Amino acid sequence: MKIIRSKTFTAPRAWGALDIANMNGITTRLHWTDQPYRWHVNDGEEVFAVLDGRVEMRYRDNGAEQTTVLEAGDIFFASVGTEHVAHPVGEARILVIESEGSV
């Protein structure tokens, strides 16, 4: 059993993570960041839930770049092949659920 207070979680570097669970190859990790990630495509599906802060999520849909701002409580689902990048607006804490070893 674990109880995690996400609002107080920090990491020594951007996108540092706390491993919460690995359920049959699906990982759940809490990330802290104040810097953008990089454009990428995951190996599988990804659930990206903003727990604290704001994140500008950029993604490509049929080759066209789209942008949406995710607030605390918002969830972004990246289906297989969705190219995307997260840009936090200040500090953010994000719960990411994805296949083990995905970028």
Rank of each mutant, 00 (worst) to 15 (best):
E83W: 00
L70D: 05
F76L: 02
E98Q: 13
H87P: 05
V96N: 07
E91R: 13
V69N: 07
E83V: 00
F77E: 07
H31P: 00
W32L: 07
W39Y: 13
M23R: 12
I94D: 05
V69P: 06
Q66T: 01
I20N: 01
T82I: 07
Y59H: 14
A21M: 09
A92N: 04
E45P: 03
T33M: 05
E56A: 13
G73L: 07
E56G: 00
E46C: 03
L30G: 14
I20K: 02
V69R: 14
A64S: 12
Q66M: 10
H84R: 12
M57Q: 15
A49T: 14
N42M: 12
D34F: 03
V50I: 10
E65P: 05
T67L: 06
G63H: 04
V47R: 12
G63T: 05
I26C: 08
V89Q: 13
G63P: 03
N22Y: 01
A72L: 05
N62I: 00
E45K: 05
D61E: 12
T82S: 08
Q66R: 13
T27R: 13
D52H: 02
A72F: 00
V47M: 14
D74S: 15
P88D: 04
S99N: 14
I26A: 09
G53S: 04
H87L: 12
G44A: 14
I94F: 09
G90H: 10
T28W: 03
V80K: 09
G63M: 04
Y59G: 02
V50K: 01
P36R: 10
D43A: 11
T27Q: 07
T28K: 06
S79L: 08
A21I: 03
L70Q: 09
R29V: 10
A92E: 08
E45C: 04
L95G: 10
I20Q: 01
R54Q: 15
Q66H: 08
D52I: 00
R38W: 04
N42C: 08
R60P: 00
L95C: 14
V55P: 08
L51H: 04
G25R: 13
L30N: 15
L30I: 14
L70S: 04
E46L: 06
E65C: 10
V80N: 11
M57F: 12
G81C: 12
R38V: 05
Q35S: 08
I26M: 11
L51V: 01
F76T: 02
F48T: 14
R54Y: 12
V55F: 05
P88A: 08
A49Y: 06
A49P: 01
R93C: 02
R93P: 00
V96G: 08
L51N: 01
A92W: 02
G53T: 01
P88H: 10
T67S: 09
I94G: 04
W39T: 10
F76N: 02
P88C: 09
A92I: 06
V50C: 06
H31W: 07
Y37T: 15
A86T: 03
L51Y: 07
